[in-house]
Design a protein around this nucleic acid. Structure first.
Lengths: 343, 343
DNA sequence: CTGAAAGCGCTTACAG
DNA sequence: CTGAAAGCGCTTACAG
């Protein structure tokens, strides 16, 4: 494998000249020399050694994408479409920018920080981190970091997210407009700040604006898993004063509910309406197709890379930046009027 | 950021002793020294510099996972569940082994090879490479490589795959057993060796064993995309001597067909049977749930990492290895007898 | 426009 | 059991 030295010797110049040519500092080299060097580079098939470059330049050209590791339930990471699509789009933009992507599931903040430091990673994008983890991460490693869907209040973190609260609000309003008065909520817990909490808040507000309240017995806990949602459909149906519509905080939950309701002989949208969130493919796979709040995942990924690259360029004089992408209601077939029996 | 030197100075030993302690060559160091070094390492929060280590050790501890880049159609990579689940599982095993994962979409063999060389990657796993690409890759970079689902004939490549042909055979047999005599095939093109070609071959063989033939007008080309499959359902229905059942080479196609048939007023499984392949989540999302051939994607990912690690250990005296995982029929609701009208 | 030298932070024979 | 020295392949001031 040829080295810089080999190229320099063959071209009859110094290593530093070759380095200058390769790194775009071409204003410092005569055209003739550039041509000669490039010819040799091509002929020898020279490829710069990235580890050597990182070591001496104190810049690795590596961007890390950290995502939640397999949770306690043993569910492997990247099983969910949101994270995997996000990763794919981030990879393409990172590569396009001439950088490299290290994929890293975070099992502990410490080990993640160690990896970043060890590779002297230029910057990192974090999926699904809690507020306390964010602080620990920032304290442990000094590089641009952008967080995704973080709803922490700290002004010192960069974030790319969406209008979760508005989404919840639109979901609630849509159901109310359809004539529903008893509306349920199905989603994961939201003790901590996060997208679920925001979506819930917006939803509750929409109800309040219509003089409605979200009754405690109409909120059902459910992880973002199809099977969990199928199972939980029973609970919704068994609730006192059964709701005639539910807002599910994720399409995968909405899809599971759809199946659960169907099995229980409660057809959607005739007897029960459902509205989802995310607009993942699953929303169109099922029948009826799910009315949901669209979010632009590729757009989020693109924005995340943009923000990170901008900060890389400014580093270390970074100003944190928050980007919030819009959401929009997409009408499909899972929302209808309340059943006649209750109208 | 403390360096090896700092630790050595603080512990009152040489750098090489610290290095020995950190790299597990502890038989060469006295227990007392080990303890002292470890204490300093902990106190200083020392983390080895991976780029320096890579450079001097000629071993990067990086494993690359290469997957197909966004195709000409502009479809982003990792949009498909198979690849993303595979990536997630590979990441977890690679990390568990103390290695790092570089995620890389391949747009050209050359640029991929350059990346591998540049980082001096220890080994790589390739998703979705064609036979000619395999050869080019192996020629361009000398390190253990394991390919996934490759059906090339070269004995010199390591591969982890599944019994695609058997799967196709089982699919055909299942449909025949249900009483079907006019059976269609829906899947991508298969001019080149690959999983689709194998599945098709097994399928055709099953038909032949039952004295049936796959009529050209009953094979419909369709990419592995839901929307494409929805559209293509018309073609299946419009075929002369319309088939009463179809084998789709991927669940996502099966799901699309399901919707397409339903829209056309041709209910599954009453008027039309469908059997899929992969056993992805989508097979259970839809109604009726799709009868399909199960493959163990996490198992494949685990096997791929195992094979790679074994070869890393033997390197450069590697023997190529082929692992083939089983498939199994999972009965659900999309296969029934032919409609009465044709019986 | 070009180069000689130092140095990035490790590991690897080699000695003792 | 421990260390001094060389070297991995680059980039970065600094000179000229």
């Amino acid at each position: 494998m040829p080295t810089l030295q080999d190229v320099a010797r063959e071209a009859g110049v110094s290593k530093m000249t070759v380095s200058n040519v390769l790194n775009g500092r071409r204003d410092r080299v005569s055209p003739a020399t550039i041509a000669r060097v490039m010819e040799v580079v091509g002929r020898l098939g020279y490829v710069p050694n990235a580890t050597a470059r990182s070591l001496s330049a104190r810049r690795s050209n590596i961007v890390a994408l950290a995502f939640p590791g397999c949770d306690s339930g043993g569910v492997e990471s990247l099983m969910n479409p949101h994270d995997s699509v996000f990763l794919g789009v981030v990879e393409s933009h990172v590569t396009k920018a001439g950088l490299y992507l290290m994929a890293h599931s975070v099992t502990s903040v410490e080990s993640t920080a160690d990896s970043l430091r060890s590779w002297n990673v230029d910057g990192a994008i974090f999926l699904g981190t809690r507020a306390d983890e964010v602080a620990a991460l920032q304290a442990a490693y000094d590089a641009p970091m952008v967080f995704i869907d973080n709803h922490g209040t700290s002004p010192h973190i960069s974030n790319v997210g969406i209008e979760d609260r508005l989404g919840g609000h639109l979901a609630g309003r849509r159901l109310i407009e359809a004539g529903h008065r008893r509306i349920g909520f199905v989603g994961p817990r939201f003790d901590e700040p996060g997208v679920v909490r925001e979506r819930h808040a917006g939803f509750v507000q929409a109800l309040a604006e219509a003089g409605l309240e979200l009754r405690p017995e109409h909120v059902v806990r459910c992880n973002a898993s199809f099977d969990a949602a199928v199972a939980v459909a029973q609970q919704v149906l068994a609730a006192p004063q059964r709701p005639t519509a539910v807002f599910a905080t994720a399409d995968i939950i909405a899809a599971g509910l759809l199946k659960g309701f169907a099995r229980a002989g409660c057809p959607v949208p005739d007897e029960m309406s459902i509205i989802g969130f995310d607009d993942l493919e699953v929303a169109r796979h099922v029948t009826p197709e799910i009315t949901t709040l669209h979010q632009d995942i590729p757009g989020k990924a693109r924005a995340a890379v943009e923000v990170l690259l901008a900060q890389l360029a400014q580093w270390p004089a970074v100003r944190s930046e928050r980007r919030v992408l819009g959401v929009s209601l997409v009408e499909r077939g899972s929302v209808g009027p309340p059943p006649a029996s209750v109208r």
